[in-house]
Design a binder for these strands. Structure first.
Lengths: 347, 347
DNA sequence: CTGTTAGCGCCTTCAT
DNA sequence: ATGAAGGCGCTAACAG
């Protein structure tokens, strides 16, 4: 059993006394503020090290008395996944109130680059930090970069713009998600040959495009028996998807699998059931919703790839808080991973 | 865009003034402390509600000035997964120092009920909270219950004792994990018939026993073409496992799948490779380690079920902190879920 | 039952 | 370049 020294009992005044300076000087050294001779600085740093001094976080937070404002810029038409994030933000808001930080949510048309960029320009400057579901478009990138330039912390959420100067991306690696879907399809078909259909919401969205890229990679190179049909876009809409899939099923008697890249799983599942081919066709999609949950249980869907909306909301908030206070973030803690959900590990 | 009121600016003294009482009384009401007339209490609660008062967490923490000590009771012989948890605790320790809490780690023989119970009795009373990798044995349960009785917060970690009075269990639903393994095996075999072997570490461990139960449930009821061989115990040891699997492969030419419930994947994988049946036999195990990672990439393993050690360590810490301060925990945030990892979504 | 008051440990003017 | 002193908002001990 390891007995730690009664750590954390050391306070600034202890350091000050030991180093023969005032607490103000220790504070200056602690935060790399100017106005301290090099020699003094070194001496203070040494004693901090020697005594193992750790500033008391609560005391610092209280004394600083800063308040911060964050804004989440979300899609105007919330699908279930996005709605879930917004709902979680409600709970988070309460916690943040106790830390004197607040979050607003604004909704905008994320498919319209001008609208999105306009929103960012309009609301951004009023906040210390922004989380944005980003459309990867030059106009949006510029708006983000300008906010960053003016000192606003920006994180991208769910969909990234890697070329922008955003501080952090909260979301999964979507190429890996697509690859995972590809591998699952290949393995679940167990060598069977046939056609694989991909339904996306919109390939303008970077997350959808990346998933498509990933699944194509795997199917094309690892499963020569499978033929990828051209990706279809159903705007994440149940009705559109139902029509698309009904047509697919009619045209391809050897359709072996469907990968739904975005939302609108209900339309696809219903079309499969209607055609009585729900059991024979492998169907993989994203996000656990009441619909996909039911489809998994009855065997219409075979696997759902998911990211935890609550975790993403909390991660974005933590990152925003930390970065706007110039504190470091723990990368490992903020990694969002892809879940593979089957009937038996549904949350 | 929703404009929130400049929330959180309300302080205790505002509430006090509005309610016509002193700050001390507000504080009493806030914490349900005795010594307040019913009428006053109601009045204060109303104004708190009306003003939307939220106590400033940092100020409260500073004023209270409590320090807490926690202890993690871990297995003496650390497998990679447990070692990972301990390593993460090192990082967490630093964060906790800033909150004036500290954690010790003690290692003990968790397979020996007397030793484990003895350790709990010996070290427990010195701490505000304990996280225990628990062996489900009456002696251990009693030790835990007595600690709880004396006011120590106890959480079980990775392996639970549901019948004990522990405040919380940090870990996955192992029956669900076993069921997930069963479904993956069944689906990956795609209707092929054959035998399924289960290798456990020790069925005395509740987590192993539960996984076994789960996998048996699914295979027996959903995949009649598959025959479950009696579970073998390899003490999570590579050498033992290698011998067991070599023998299995020799005896059963129709061995279709292996589910490794505990550690020691290397021995199993090596035996499969040696027998040149690595590709044909479906091999599923637990926990991402350098070994299982390599097996996944080269196709010896088909899927790994995993729980994130860092997340579990942090969750246990958060829960201990919250409960020992009489704060609520956010269940959803503390849920540990089972990850299905294939080659393409390796972290 | 209720109010007064002195901190908690750090940060931040304002002097020196 | 350095120090002294007053708060930050809440809690707890002590009066009344």
């Amino acid at each position: 059993m390891r007995e730690l020294p009664t750590a954390g009992m050391v306070e600034i005044k202890d350091v000050a006394r030991e180093a023969g300076v005032s607490t103000a000087t220790v504070d200056r050294v602690l935060h790399d503020r100017p106005g301290v001779r090099d020699a003094t600085m070194r001496r203070v740093k040494d004693t901090i090290e020697r005594l193992g001094f750790q500033p008391h976080a609560a005391a610092a937070e209280l004394a600083r008395g800063r308040r911060q404002r964050f804004c989440f810029v979300m899609p105007k038409t919330l699908n279930l996944f996005m709605a879930d994030i917004v709902e979680q933000l409600g709970a988070i808001r309460r916690q943040l109130a106790a830390r004197r930080a607040l979050i607003d949510v604004v909704e905008t048309d994320v498919f319209d680059a001008d609208a999105l960029a306009g929103t960012l320009e309009a609301v951004g400057p009023r906040y210390d930090g922004l989380a944005v579901v980003a459309l990867d478009h030059p106009r949006v990138r510029i708006a983000i970069d300008e906010l960053v330039e003016s000192g606003v912390v920006v994180v991208t959420l769910v969909s990234d713009i890697p070329s922008s100067r955003r501080a952090h991306y909260v979301g999964v690696n979507n190429i890996a998600a697509g690859r995972t879907a590809g591998t699952l399809i290949g393995r679940l078909l167990g060598g069977r040959a046939g056609k694989v259909a991909i339904i996306a919401g919109s390939l303008l969205l970077r997350d959808h495009a990346e998933r498509l890229f990933g699944v194509q990679q795997v199917i094309a190179t690892e499963y020569p028996g499978l033929t990828l049909l051209p990706a279809l876009e159903g705007r994440d809409d149940d009705d559109d998807n139902r029509v698309l899939v009904s047509r697919l099923l009619a045209e391809h008697s050897d359709l072996a699998a469907i990968y739904n890249i975005g939302a609108g799983a209900t339309g696809i599942g219903d079309a499969l059931i209607e055609a009585r081919r729900a059991q024979e066709v492998v169907f993989i999609g994203h996000d656990v919703t009441p619909q996909t949950r039911r489809f998994l249980i009855v065997g219409v869907m075979d696997a759902v790839l998911s990211q935890n909306p609550g975790r993403e909301a909390r991660s974005a908030t933590r990152v925003l808080l930390a970065l706007s206070r110039n504190e470091p973030i723990i990368a490992e803690q903020e990694r969002i991973d892809i879940h593979v959900i089957v009937r038996d590990n549904l949350p």
